[in-house]
Design a binder for these strands. Sequence first.
DNA 1: GGTGTGACCAGCT
DNA 2: AAGCTGGCCACAC
Length: 109
Amino acid sequence: MSEQSFFEKVYEVVRLIPHGRLTSYGAIAEYLGTRGSARMVGWAMNASFSARENIPAHRVVNRKGLLTGKHYFGAPDIMKQLLESEGVHVENDQIVNFEEHFWDPAAEL
DNA sequence: GGTGTGACCAGCT
DNA sequence: AAGCTGGCCACAC
C-alpha cells in the first residue's frame, strides 16, 4: 500500500468521497499524515488532470469551502456545475452549508 | 542533486 | 478587524 506515491493516495481518498459530499485539502493531508502539507494535496489535484482516470477534484475545496481551484477545471463554471449536479449548492464560488456537506476521511474511514 | 513550485493553513502584525 | 508572511512536504526540471 505504501508503495504508491503520495498522489495515488490522494486520488484514492478523493475517489472515496461520497456523492454530494465535500472535503478540504487539509483534511486529506491530515488523513495522509501530512497535515502541514495541505498544499501537496492541492498540487496532487492539479496532477489529477494528468491522471488517466477521472478524479472528482470538484469535491475538494479549501478550508473555507471556497472553490479555489475552479479556474483549473478549464472553465470557471465547470466546478460549480459539477457540485450543483450532485446536489451541492454553490454561491459566490463558495459552498453553502459547507459544514453539512463536509466529509472527513479520518472520521469516515 | 539543488531549486522552485504549489488548487493551503494558521499565526502574527 | 483584516491583510500578509511563513511553513510545510512531495514532485518536476
